[in-house]
Design a protein around this nucleic acid. Structure first.
Lengths: 217, 217
DNA sequence: GTCTATAAACCGATAGAC
DNA sequence: GTCTATCGGTTTATAGAC
């Protein structure tokens, strides 16, 4: 039952965006009284939070599936597969992507979604750490990461228990931010009258990401 | 007078975000009747559009100033100066940055803000084209841009009349998207519990951007 | 569990007096 | 130009009957 409400909420999300999502509209479209919805979600905030959590989870699962599908491939191909999966999901669910990586939908302080977001991060880290441990030695990441950055970007990697050197992790963190930012850019329509061949453009940029992250060949 | 309204609107913007910006609240905070505001801005939409235009303009001017200040420096230093200026402005005016590069604040179709956005793009292109034409020859951009991408990303450069080869422009377009996306990421607080030394992290990533754009030394 | 009814706000925009 | 007053709509959330 909560699933029916969330499904309809996601439809309204796609139609009008997260900020305009209203409990009443969901109930109306679902043919029930608005007060009924409050039985299942104590407030609008709880509903939005649930949607955000689901979106994180779905995107993470999507990335994991892509990685599994490219199981036997070369490191760079597995990397590209995950990147493509993220972009494809984002283009299919733009409002959910914005819910996750866009401006906070709730006026309250951001709940530090480090937990849910970790799922995607872990997947990308796995590609890099496998490449690092693989038989084809990866090139050292370009540029010299300064000590201060390596220190605290290395921590998440340690928490996710990847045997990846700190400077690699720093590069990967930067690359992740660039990847998610780039996808957000396209989702938000910033390329609308600038880049036409977006698929190739993305592939081109992704190859750069792989080089930057030190994922060889 | 329109300036007083826009100033207060920007304050409200910083307080509650673009979606929550209301004409009535601006008037209330300004001590005037809400109908008075409608004398100067025929609708809420016009007000938001004016704010968006101003934000584009201010950010562009800010980038230009940074470039002028680094007039005599090496290409990579001028590049970094512009990047830093963009980030600094964005962190000082997060809601205005989101207004420009975030989800469209108006439910209507995006007005294809290629005109206003061109100001920042032109500045970044100028750094690259100067580097290309400079006495220190820039390295060719890493990776092979495919034909389809080069074709349509080369067009804006041509419009902005920069003597930059198509493959360079393709790389620069990608880099611009990554830069603006990265800044958006930080502005939206996605680094909050992940990266502490953000300034160094940004500098590190910017150096990568310069390499990627083929801006040497 | 689902409903009706309602409270208490907020909003954009307009009409018309002064 | 600025005001008062108002229309017609929206919302979150609650109270209480069935």
């Amino acid at each position: 039952m909560t699933a029916r409400i969330k499904d309809e909420a996601r439809r309204r999300l796609a139609a009008q965006g997260a900020q305009q999502l209203s409990v009443r509209a969901v109930a109306r479209e679902l043919g029930m009284a608005s007060s009924t919805v409050y039985r299942y979600f104590p407030s609008r905030e709880h509903l939005v939070t649930a949607l955000t959590h689901d979106a994180h989870d779905t995107l993470g699962r999507c990335a994991e599936r892509a990685l599994d599908s490219a199981s036997g491939a070369a490191a760079v191909d597995r990397w590209n597969a995950v990147c493509r999966a993220v972009r494809t999901w984002a283009l299919l669910h733009p409002h959910e992507y914005v819910l996750v990586y866009g401006p906070p939908a709730l006026p309250k302080a951001a709940p530090a979604a480090v937990g849910p977001a970790a799922r995607l991060a872990r997947t990308l880290l796995r590609v890099a750490s496998d490449a690092h441990a693989g038989d084809v030695p990866d090139e050292p990441p370009a540029g010299r990461p300064c000590a201060g950055v390596g220190a605290d970007t290395g921590r998440p990697a340690a928490e996710l228990s990847c045997g990846l050197p700190a400077d690699h992790t720093t590069c990967l963190t930067a690359v992740m931010a660039q990847l998610l930012g780039l996808v957000a850019f396209e989702v938000l329509g910033q390329f609308d009258h600038v880049v036409q061949a977006r698929e190739e453009f993305f592939a081109h940029t992704c190859a750069g990401f792989a080089r930057q992250a030190g994922i060889g060949v």
